[in-house]
Measured scan of single mutants.
Amino acid sequence: EDEVKKIVKRLIENGVDDEQIKEIVKRQGVDERIVDKVLKELK
């Protein structure tokens, strides 16, 4: 989960929008619920 957080944070800093972040992270095989949780925490 910490790995996911790092990735998502980097994507947000690069101006990637939420939908794209979800797609990218899902392609890495991460559960969507984890992605949603991380996005909420970082906003």
Rank of each mutant, 00 (worst) to 15 (best):
E1K: 08
E1A: 09
E1G: 07
E1N: 10
E1P: 09
D2T: 09
D2N: 10
D2P: 08
D2V: 09
D2Y: 08
D2A: 13
D2Q: 11
D2S: 11
D2G: 08
E3C: 05
E3I: 13
E3T: 09
E3R: 10
E3K: 11
V4E: 01
V4T: 05
V4A: 06
V4Q: 01
V4C: 03
V4H: 01
V4G: 01
V4L: 10
K5A: 08
K5G: 04
K5E: 06
K5I: 10
K5D: 02
K5Y: 05
K5V: 10
K5Q: 06
K6D: 10
K6H: 10
K6Q: 14
K6T: 12
K6Y: 02
K6W: 03
K6M: 12
K6E: 14
K6S: 12
K6P: 03
K6G: 09
I7F: 03
I7C: 05
I7T: 10
I7N: 05
I7Y: 02
I7M: 10
I7V: 10
I7H: 07
I7L: 12
I7E: 08
I7R: 08
V8R: 00
V8C: 04
V8M: 07
V8N: 00
V8Q: 00
V8S: 01
V8I: 14
V8L: 06
V8G: 00
V8T: 02
V8E: 00
K9G: 08
K9D: 04
K9V: 09
K9W: 02
K9N: 07
K9Y: 02
K9S: 09
K9I: 12
K9T: 08
R10D: 11
R10F: 09
R10G: 10
R10P: 04
R10A: 15
R10I: 12
R10S: 12
R10C: 07
R10L: 12
R10M: 12
L11R: 00
L11E: 01
L11S: 01
L11I: 01
L11D: 00
L11A: 02
L11V: 00
L11T: 00
L11C: 04
L11Q: 01
I12G: 02
I12D: 00
I12W: 15
I12M: 14
I12H: 14
I12P: 00
I12S: 05
I12K: 11
I12A: 06
I12Q: 11
I12Y: 14
E13K: 10
E13T: 08
E13D: 11
E13F: 07
E13A: 11
E13I: 08
E13W: 05
E13N: 09
E13Y: 07
E13R: 08
E13C: 05
N14D: 15
N14F: 13
N14T: 14
N14Y: 12
N14I: 15
N14G: 11
N14R: 14
N14V: 10
G15W: 04
G15A: 05
G15F: 06
G15I: 02
G15D: 05
G15K: 06
G15H: 09
G15E: 05
G15P: 01
G15N: 08
G15L: 06
V16D: 05
V16Y: 15
V16M: 15
V16H: 14
V16Q: 08
V16N: 11
V16K: 11
V16L: 15
V16W: 14
V16R: 08
D17P: 15
D17C: 06
D17F: 07
D17H: 12
D17E: 12
D17L: 12
D17G: 13
D17A: 14
D17R: 12
D17N: 12
D18V: 14
D18R: 09
D18I: 15
D18H: 10
D18G: 08
D18L: 12
D18C: 06
D18N: 09
D18E: 13
D18M: 12
D18W: 14
E19V: 11
E19H: 09
E19M: 12
E19K: 10
E19G: 09
E19A: 14
E19T: 12
Q20R: 13
Q20A: 13
Q20F: 09
Q20P: 02
Q20G: 11
Q20D: 10
Q20V: 11
Q20H: 13
Q20S: 13
Q20C: 02
Q20T: 15
I21T: 02
I21C: 02
I21K: 00
I21Q: 00
I21N: 00
I21A: 03
K22Q: 06
K22Y: 10
K22H: 08
K22I: 13
K22V: 11
K22G: 04
E23K: 10
E23G: 08
E23S: 10
E23T: 11
E23M: 07
E23R: 11
E23Q: 12
E23D: 10
E23I: 13
E23W: 01
I24N: 04
I24K: 05
I24Y: 03
I24A: 06
I24T: 07
I24P: 00
I24E: 06
I24M: 09
V25D: 00
V25E: 01
V25W: 01
V25A: 10
V25S: 04
V25P: 00
V25R: 00
V25H: 02
V25M: 15
V25G: 03
V25K: 01
V25F: 14
V25Q: 04
V25C: 06
K26M: 15
K26G: 12
K26L: 15
K26Q: 11
K26E: 06
K26W: 02
K26N: 07
K26C: 06
K26S: 12
K26A: 12
K26R: 13
R27Q: 13
R27M: 13
R27L: 13
R27N: 13
R27W: 04
R27E: 09
R27K: 13
R27D: 09
Q28E: 09
Q28P: 03
Q28L: 15
Q28N: 10
Q28H: 13
Q28M: 15
Q28T: 14
G29R: 03
G29L: 05
G29T: 02
G29S: 04
G29Q: 04
G29F: 05
G29W: 03
G29N: 07
G29P: 02
G29V: 04
G29Y: 03
V30W: 15
V30K: 06
V30S: 04
V30D: 01
V30Y: 15
V30L: 13
V30A: 08
V30T: 06
V30M: 12
V30F: 14
D31N: 10
D31V: 06
D31M: 06
D31K: 06
D31H: 09
D31G: 05
D31Y: 02
D31W: 02
D31F: 03
D31E: 11
D31R: 05
E32R: 07
E32M: 11
E32Y: 04
E32K: 07
E32I: 13
E32W: 04
E32A: 12
E32L: 10
E32P: 14
R33Q: 14
R33E: 11
R33W: 13
R33C: 06
R33K: 13
R33S: 14
R33H: 13
R33M: 11
I34Q: 06
I34Y: 07
I34P: 00
I34E: 06
I34N: 03
I34W: 08
I34A: 06
I34D: 05
V35Y: 05
V35M: 06
V35Q: 01
V35G: 01
V35N: 00
V35W: 03
V35H: 00
V35P: 00
V35F: 07
V35R: 01
D36A: 07
D36W: 01
D36Y: 01
D36N: 08
D36I: 11
D36L: 04
D36F: 01
D36T: 08
D36R: 04
K37S: 07
K37Y: 03
K37Q: 09
K37M: 08
K37H: 08
K37N: 07
K37V: 05
K37C: 05
K37W: 04
K37L: 07
V38D: 00
V38I: 15
V38C: 06
V38N: 01
V38Y: 07
V38G: 00
V38R: 01
V38T: 04
V38P: 00
V38E: 01
V38S: 02
L39I: 10
L39F: 04
L39M: 08
L39P: 00
K40A: 15
K40I: 11
K40W: 05
K40M: 12
K40P: 07
K40G: 15
E41A: 04
E41D: 15
E41Y: 03
E41W: 03
E41R: 02
E41S: 04
E41P: 00
E41M: 03
E41T: 03
E41G: 04
E41I: 03
L42F: 04
L42Y: 03
L42C: 02
L42P: 02
L42R: 04
L42D: 03
L42N: 04
L42S: 07
L42M: 09
L42W: 01
L42H: 06
L42T: 07
K43R: 12
K43E: 15
K43F: 07
K43C: 06
K43T: 09
K43M: 11
K43I: 10
K43Y: 10
K43L: 13
K43A: 13
K43V: 09
K43H: 14
K43D: 15
